[in-house]
Design a binder for these strands. Structure first.
Length: 584
RNA sequence: GCCCCCGUAGUUCAAUGGAUAGAACGGAGGUUUCCUAAACCUUAAAUGCAGGUUCGAUUCCUGCCGGGGGCACCA
């Protein structure tokens, strides 16, 4: 099933070939119209090509329209300086809506078929709290994985947890000096967090404590059995705690290959870099330097400072023999390419890591590991002072608290709006609505936007929010519950007459066009925005067009339109990792 | 010092180089004997500044102003 956009593009391409001959190089570039006044789809190809072929754009557009075969689709007209505006006929929209109802994929193309993608997201540190700062990677990454899967990619999700970092120096020290075993039984993750914070505070300004932590870390890395055992237990406890949050968020990982998993690959990796001349020792550390193959301002291994262009090496082994972030990332990338045969690797990691990834990707390519690497960067969550939220400060709101608060607020609204629900269902609805609100707040904005954390913004239940979309779905389901006999959408004849029906149908048939666009630049907010538009169009339709009270034929047609709307909303929200209730 | 990201209604956010810049919240005004008013309808309100490229710039380029981040042994 091709999309309307593809169909129009194909027909316009044929017209281009007819008018300009083969090899004209023009891209039909059919896009959804910027404004309904200009029809449903538009192409600017005539204006773009006019210069090359030295013709008047309007004249060229006219000839293209003359050559255009739009049988069964609609019509086209010239507008403004040379736009070609397409209007899609009601029968065509009805036919496409019907086809979507008969397709379990809702018309989604398989643009990702044959591509194996590793999505790296969430990646929290073990024994440190998951706070609001982790929410973006987790939610955006999960959504991108869902979208990719829906488009036919073979997706591998991998939670690259920080289970071997320097934080274990502090945790080991704290474990031995201030752990409360009873508290650990009651609330393992909470106690680990408390211990970490306490040691962090004690170390702050105390070189002695810091040194003791460092020594604990060294002992761990040297394989000290006691420390290894403590480490193992901490990782287990933390993973269990993390898993509860992921379960709640309905997020699953195919793998949890954390940093520790790559430990024994790091030494050989550095040796290989040295042997191949990709790295050399400088000031005691093993570094990857520029090889001069890139222009200076495009070279991640060079940087400009007061003295002009200087080296900006990527360290892969410290002077004391320890390994670094970049070393593990290179080992991980190597593994994903060679063991998993990944065609693409997407890193859903904050924007501050940009330089790091440019260096890692460049080094990997020089090392002979090449694939479509993407750093899917996102903006920072700022504190009230507009400064970055710091992990160590301890004042950060934890992710679990955000989820609890969201569900609590949703529960209050559910109790107020629909007291008829029994307690069990009310609680289930509050969970779905509250968590949906949190996810949607994240996914409905551009991933690179920085924002100041605010409860009200993250937990809003009105306006452009998930609950609005969920409510739309609920109203539709409510119609079907009132039906006195079964309704078979596949058998219904769609007839679109009212302006509101047409407006809704236009948006519904665009769903399979919008979903692939999400992956063009890794932007779930495009889908979020489209779902909001669809829901608004549905409510406008629902106000203006009676469904159950309409005559037989109109009623069947409108029921089919409702059914498709419900399916699109549920599927679209599903791609955002958000569930829909049957009533609320 | 250099590099990266961001700057849009009062506020929070949108807008693959397209036409008269969209929403939401908040403001003002309206809609309920009618399929869930968590809704709908009407209304006022914005592209930091200055240049450039282009038929056309919120979008691309340059400079400035403002906010955030990064730049050798943390991750």
């Amino acid at each position: 099933m091709t999309t309307l956009q593809q169909e129009l593009g194909r027909r316009l391409a044929a017209a281009l070939e007819q008018v300009l001959g083969a090899g004209h190089g023009g891209d039909p570039a059919v896009v959804a119209a910027s404004d309904r006044r200009f029809g449903d789809y538009q192409s600017n190809v005539a204006m773009v090509l006019a210069k090359q072929v030295r013709r008047n754009p309007r004249e060229l557009a006219g000839r293209l329209i003359g050559a255009l075969d739009l049988a069964g689709v609609g019509s086209a007209e010239i507008a403004g300086p040379g736009f070609i505006n397409f209007r899609v006929g009601a029968e065509c929209l009805a036919g496409r809506a019907a086809a979507m109802l008969g397709d379990a994929r809702l018309g989604l193309p398989r643009t990702g078929a044959g591509r194996r993608v590793v999505v790296d997201f969430s990646a929290p540190n073990v024994a440190k709290p998951m706070h609001v700062g982790h929410i973006r990677s987790t939610i955006i990454g999960d959504s991108l994985a869902r979208v990719a899967r829906a488009l036919g990619h073979e997706v591998i999700t991998d939670n690259h947890i920080g289970d071997w970092g320097t934080q274990f120096g502090m945790i080991l020290h704290g474990w031995k000096t201030c752990r409360d075993e009873a508290a650990l039984e009651r609330d393992p993750v909470g106690e680990l967090v408390r211990v970490y914070r306490e040691v962090n505070e004690r170390a702050n300004g105390s070189p002695e404590v810091l040194e003791q932590c460092r020594q604990e870390l060294v002992r761990l890395q040297q394989g000290d059995p006691a420390n290894l055992e403590i480490w193992r237990r901490c990782v287990e406890l933390s993973k269990a705690g993390l898993q509860r949050i992921y379960d709640r968020l309905d997020i699953r990982f195919d793998h949890w290959l954390g940093e520790s998993w790559y430990n024994d690959r790091l030494g050989p990796l550095v040796d290989d870099f040295l042997a191949r001349g990709l790295a050399r020792v400088s000031e005691g550390a093993v570094c990857v330097f520029s090889d001069g193959s890139l222009p200076p301002d495009d070279d991640p291994f060079r940087i400009h400072n007061e003295g002009g262009w200087t080296d900006n090496p990527m360290l892969i082994r410290k002077g004391d023999g320890g390994f670094l972030y970049a070393t593990t990332d290179l080992a991980t990338l190597d593994f994903r390419l060679r063991e998993w045969r990944a065609d693409e690797v997407w890193y859903v990691v904050g924007a501050p890591q940009q330089l790091h990834f440019r260096q890692v990707f460049a080094a990997a390519r020089r090392w002979g590991r090449d694939a479509a690497f993407r750093h899917v960067a996102f903006g920072s969550i700022l504190g009230e002072d507009r400064k970055l939220m710091k992990t160590r400060s301890g004042r950060n709101v934890q992710l679990g608290e955000v989820l609890d608060e969201a569900v609590e607020r949703a529960a209050a609204v559910v109790a107020e709006k629909n007291p008829a629900l029994d307690d069990g269902e009310a609680a289930a609805v509050a969970e779905v609505v509250g968590l949906g609100a949190v996810k949607f707040a994240e996914l409905s904005q551009h991933r690179l936007t920085d924002y100041v954390f605010s409860w009200d913004r993250m937990l809003a239940l009105h306006g452009d929010t998930a609950p609005y979309l969920q409510y739309s779905h609920v109203r539709i389901r409510s119609i079907f519950r009132r039906l006195d006999r079964p309704f078979d959408p596949a058998a219904a004849q769609l007839r679109l007459d009212a302006a509101e029906e047409l407006a809704l149908a236009r948006l519904l048939v665009r769903y399979p066009e919008v979903v692939p666009a999400v992956l063009d630049d890794f932007r779930p907010n495009l889908l979020a925005g489209h779902l909001l538009e669809t829901a608004r169009a549905f409510h406008a339709f629902f106000e203006a067009c009676p469904v159950l009270r309409a005559g037989e034929a109109v009623r069947a047609s409108r029921l089919a339109l409702c059914e498709l709307t419900a399916r699109v909303l549920a599927a679209g929200l599903g791609l955002l990792g958000i569930r829909v209730p049957e009533r609320m």
